[in-house]
Design a protein around this nucleic acid. Structure first.
Lengths: 342, 342
DNA sequence: CTGAAAGCGCTTACAG
DNA sequence: CTGAAAGCGCTTACAG
């Protein structure tokens, strides 16, 4: 079992100094062509690859970025990762993916662990628990330490850093307006509890759309689901109690759950109940009927986030400027009409 | 903007040597309690965290493992990642996730990049292209270099390393037998091209089930789909041409596609056509009707793979034994009955 | 043209 | 009890 070969070994074999080997391999003109070629041939033969860890220590950068997401099961986050990967790989960066599992503690542990030299910067979407506690000290620490962060989707407004979001409120407003235009009278909202930033914004969009059309807001038409295990029960009761003729759900899981429960009751979709979801995921595409949805364009979000992070990373090198200005990019959304609406 | 504090800085501030600081922080008994506490207090104040990169260089290990998957959109791979994450985090390892995008080149580049010191070991499921070319030199190189690899799901038999698989053939046999027991006469198979190892094995299981029951195998009842963009067209033609009364699909995408195309033609499911898929993903759970499927237990596969890798990593330290023996773990599957079969 | 030395941040065997 | 030195694998300014 041959171990990894190092500069030192090559130097010894060839009876030259480590410096000479290093320079030869980097094609330095300082070294005579003769030695250079000899070293290069030898290195190739032994399949020499510089040790990344040593390089990182030397250069003070790792060419690795980390994306922290709440969970991987949501198709949306998978698409964001794709976007990040594409851009990062193109620019020669590795991508480390961490799951916070919606847990504040796991988020903190992961960040602290990696902030200690392993990576150059973070892309993160906050866990529910973090949004609930509003405790962002781990983010602040990392930023103070000089490591850039880009937040996406589930962000914290108060933290100064680059951000990539969609206009959640506007998107929800548009979806709701779409239903209003179809003259539905009882438009229900399936949302999350308010501490999830995007849930809150989407709820606001829904309310704004109603207000714009002088439709009185009725709180009994809104379900705020906290406990994921109780989704079915809550939505089921809601359907029975309110008999809505249209529904706007803030994610695709809620949308499809409502769809299936309604079908079970013999409610025809979209004839008797129209449904719009959020997130253009695999569920919306493959349910029967397919679900009309607000597309979040996760790939683009990821790509833009990676772009912003890497730009900042590479800029830092040149000018260590103190007047940091942060940008917030808003990615456009679109309503994809499918079979669950008329 | 305070930069990361190092041992050197602490040593200077406190006017002691770097060694003393290092030992104090590691609670060495060599150091007087007095100095120890002083150093520790100071380190805490300045929020000192040892630099992981330096530690890695010193220790020759990174406490990071990498999982390479063909793509992240398939729910199955997402579940495997969850399993890996859980076990790895528990044991103090970071997980790096790389996407090969089903491309041989990306797989090679990713591996070479990371094999150079960034990580301690790999968990990998091969890209289609790699399986097609049967070129595994990158895997062999990494293994020769002394870095352990665990392969899962899409494996290469000839490569000597630990493996985690399901019994694809048996699982397919069971699923087919299930349909035979229901006395279906024209059981179709939706499979991939043969170079995808799991596709081939599942096809063999299907054939074996037929043989076991003395049912003649008819090649026109089998569709081998290569081009993902032509899925719909191929399945559509097949349904029209063969009018099967039952279908076994080797993944959930094929299953749901068949289901939707059949519905469009007014074929009732499961009354006129029963469908069984493979992979207990989100699609099978949320389609209407929900799809009966072979569950692959991705979380377990990931957990076992991580377990095997870390075990080997930690064993290596103790005994540098040469008589390597590799294990292949077979994870059990089960048939989850849902609405798409009677 | 070549090489010795310093340095990235850490640990640890060894001397005192 | 404390610290100087060597070393992990590399790069590069500097001497020769």
């Amino acid at each position: 079992m041959k171990r990894k070969v190092t500069l030192k070994q090559i130097a010894k074999e060839l009876d030259v100094s480590i410096s000479t080997v290093s320079k030869s391999l980097r094609n330095s003109l300082e070294i005579s062509e003769d030695t250079r070629l000899k070293v290069q041939a030898f290195a190739k033969l032994y399949n020499y690859k510089p040790n990344n860890i040593a390089l990182s220590l030397k250069n003070k950068k790792t060419k690795t970025i980390c994306i922290i997401i709440p969970e991987i099961i949501h198709h949306f986050f998978a698409t964001v990762i794709s976007g990040v990967e594409q851009v990062a790989n193109e620019k020669g960066y590795n991508v480390l993916i961490c799951l916070s599992d919606e847990s504040f503690d796991k988020e903190v542990i992961n960040m602290e662990m990696l902030a200690s030299g392993s990576i150059d910067g973070f892309i993160i979407s906050l866990s529910k628990e973090t949004q609930n506690r509003k405790d962002f000290h781990h983010l602040e620490e990392v930023i103070n330490q000089g490591m850039p962060i880009v937040m996406f989707d589930r962000i914290a407004n108060d933290i100064l850093c680059d951000k990539v979001i969609i206009d959640d409120q506007q998107a929800a407003l548009n979806a709701t307006q779409f239903l209003i235009d179809k003259e539905y009278k009882k438009i229900g909202l399936l949302s999350t509890v308010d501490y999830v930033s995007v849930g809150k914004l989407r709820t606001e969009g829904y309310m704004k759309a109603l207000a714009n059309n002088n439709i009185p807001f009725k709180s009994n038409l809104v379900v705020k689901i906290e406990d994921m295990t109780a989704i079915e029960a809550e939505i089921d009761q809601f359907l029975v109690r309110e008999k809505p003729d249209a529904l706007f759900a803030v994610n695709e899981l809620f949308a499809v759950t409502a769809l299936k429960l309604a079908q079970k009751k013999g409610i025809k979709i979209p004839e008797e109940l129209s449904i719009i979801g959020f997130t253009d995921g695999i569920i919306s595409k493959f349910s029967s009927p397919t679900i009309t949805t607000v597309s979040q364009n996760g790939v683009k979000m990821g790509a833009v986030a990676a772009q912003m992070l890497i730009e900042r990373l590479e800029k830092e090198e040149e000018e260590e400027e103190e007047n940091e200005t942060y940008r917030t990019e808003v990615i456009e959304t679109e309503l994809i009409e499918r079979e669950s609406t008329l």
